[in-house]
Design a binder for these strands. Structure first.
Length: 539
RNA sequence: GCCCUCGUAGCUCAGGGGAUAGAGCAACCGCCUCCUAAGCGGUAGGUCGCAGGUUCGAAUCCUGCCGAGGGCACCA
């Protein structure tokens, strides 16, 4: 790859100059300003001081030596600013990129080998089955799925999991609401007033028992949640029942294992875990309630047991939890609990998604203005819904204007990107109609691609492997969204200025441009697929 | 009080050590005898919350302050 080749040649030069100490690596980047060349390195700035050189002088020597023996594709090396070494390249480096992209194709281009088969479980959504998913608690579901896609492409063996909170107080409350509705009464204080509860009540013919009614309701609601997620193309490998943990020996055996850590003690009739040693600012947490409080294990105890199940019993190498920021308070305690079990807490990664808000104000089930996720999907479609939530970082508390989103559906950026794909398909269709076939890539003169639009497109395509790598390592699939918009923009520019077929387009150029369109298609298909957004052939 | 995230164009957000800070929307002006105008080009719009510090270089890293959101249960 060009970057490695340039870095190698710079490093060789530094060796020849007997620079000591040599830098660990030579950083090459593409300058934002075109006047600064095609590639640039700050290596002189970074190493000069320690090696006892003046940065500009060192940069000058590097440029001088490289100019005396130019690396492949390089037409000239210059110094600029305080000591940058800038490379000017012949367009052939980009033509090589084109060949790489179409040769690798959608299955192999931009497939970084990072995971190396490591198993990763990503747990996300995990909303309580006490009501349909609303826009707020469904906001980061596309994030979890896109992250799973990005990590899969990067070589991890990924499993998607939904932790179903199908036991405990919330379920009893839900059951109480159902029973009240069945009796024709209002739901009790703190219950669930939604219409879906009434629907459930009409179908429930079981005993007058809150837990029984609650589970019945949760099962039905879960079906609805699953359908909503599937309509977004999100399919979980596992729907893991909290009850299955709490009603088994899992909590008890986890409890015993915690005791063995020596961090467990009794106080005020309750059993506590000392979590301070593993970094919890709360220092100690109750894991088993006192008799006066019922004597049950706490949620934390169950959660530690659940994560023991993930990391020890099922043995995933790595577990990633995607939680809403409102669960921030649980992070340190859970990590401490996992560590107390003797499990390396580095294997558990918890990403907090900041709360989203609506331009119209706060949303909440109890405020009665919760907008169902399924409603939004019905309004603007699955692709737009996913794309929308994947444009921002999860660290950003996004503000969504639902009215604008609905009215501006046709101007949604997702269509801009999909339209680029449709245009490529349209070109291919026209080529087929005209009986134009693409010649094998190695028989096509790619050096005919010299238009700035063409070269910009190739520069962007070059970036995809780096983008996927960054999206994976930083757990930031929105980087793919940013990139795919950029690529679509480049393609629209090319489409507008560079006709692939036409009376004044020579057949050789048509061939080269057909391959460029194909490379663009590869980029769009890969990018959109990572986001879980469809790539339609026509719009 | 302590912890986490954020403060970038009128709005919604990218950029998260490099050289002149970007996009979309909104506003204004142009562009189809030709592969879908759901497109392309242009104009206008910024003290990157404030103040210090580190660095050859800071929107980016560190500290403090201000502002917004979230969190600090024998609830889940």
């Amino acid at each position: 790859m060009i970057r490695d080749a340039l870095a190698d040649s710079v490093l060789t030069t530094l060796r020849t100059l007997e620079i000591d100490p040599l830098p660990d690596s030579v950083h090459l980047e593409r300058p934002a300003n075109r006047e600064h060349g095609d590639w640039s390195t700050n290596v002189a700035l970074a190493t000069a001081k320690k090696a006892g050189w003046n940065p500009r002088e060192l940069a000058g020597r590097i440029a001088e030596m490289l100019n005396a023996d130019l690396p492949a594709h390089v037409t000239g090396v210059e110094i600029a600013g305080p000591g940058f070494v800038n490379f000017r390249l012949h367009d052939t480096w980009l033509h090589e990129v084109l060949a790489e992209v179409v040769t690798a194709g959608t299955t192999d281009y931009a497939r970084p080998h990072i995971g190396d088969g490591e198993t990763v479980q990503i747990e996300f959504v995990s909303a309580n089955p006490t009501g349909p998913l609303h826009v707020g608690n469904g906001w980061w579901c596309a994030y979890g799925d896109a992250l799973a896609r990005v990590m899969t492409r990067s070589g991890y063996a990924v499993s998607r999991e939904y932790y179903v909170n199908d036991t405990g107080g919330q379920i009893r409350k839900l059951g109480d609401s159902v029973l009240a509705r069945r009796r024709g009464e209002d739901v009790p204080e703190g219950g669930y007033p939604g219409d879906y509860v009434a629907d459930v009540a009409r179908r429930y013919d079981g005993p007058e028992d809150a837990t029984d009614a609650g589970r019945f309701a949760a099962d039905l609601i879960l079906v609805d949640i699953r359908e909503t997620l599937e309509s977004l193309g999100i399919v979980f490998d596992e729907w893991f029942s909290q009850a299955s943990i709490e009603e088994s020996e899992a909590v008890e055996s986890t409890f015993q294992q915690l005791r063995a850590s020596g961090l467990v003690f009794e106080r005020d009739g309750a059993t506590w875990l000392r979590t301070a040693d593993h970094g919890d600012p709360r220092e100690e947490r109750v894991i088993k309630k006192s008799a006066a409080e019922g004597g049950d294990y706490t949620y934390l105890a169950g959660d530690i047991a659940y994560h023991r199940n993930k990391l020890e019993i099922r043995g995933f190498d790595h577990a990633i939890n995607i939680w809403g920021a409102d669960h921030h308070g649980q992070v340190a305690s859970l990590r401490a609990g996992v560590a107390a079990l003797g499990i390396d807490p580095a294997r558990l990664e918890i990403r907090l998604g900041q709360m989203m808000s609506l331009a119209s104000g706060r949303m909440g089930k109890r405020l009665g203005n919760a907008v169902d996720l399924s409603e939004l999907i019905a309004d603007i479609g699955a692709d737009a819904t996913r794309f929308l939530s994947l444009t921002t970082s999860i660290d950003q508390s996004a503000t969504v204007d639902l009215d604008q989103v609905r009215s501006a559906t046709m101007e949604n950026p997702v269509f801009y990107v999909q339209y680029a794909h449709a245009r490529i398909c349209s070109i291919n269709k026209k080529a087929a109609d005209l009986g134009v076939e693409r010649a094998p890539i190695d028989e096509v003169d790619l050096s005919l691609l010299t238009h700035e639009r063409e070269l910009d497109l190739l520069r962007t395509l070059f970036e995809l492997p780096d983008v996927v790598t960054a999206a994976c390592v930083d757990r930031a699939p929105h980087k793919v969204t940013v990139w795919v918009r950029e690529l679509a923009g480049r393609f629209h520019g090319f489409y507008h200025d560079c006709y692939v077929m036409g009376d004044d387009v020579p057949p050789e150029l048509t061939q080269a441009r057909l391959w460029l369109a194909e490379a663009s298609r590869v980029g769009l298909v890969v990018g959109l697929d990572l986001l879980g957004v469809s790539a339609p052939e026509e719009m």
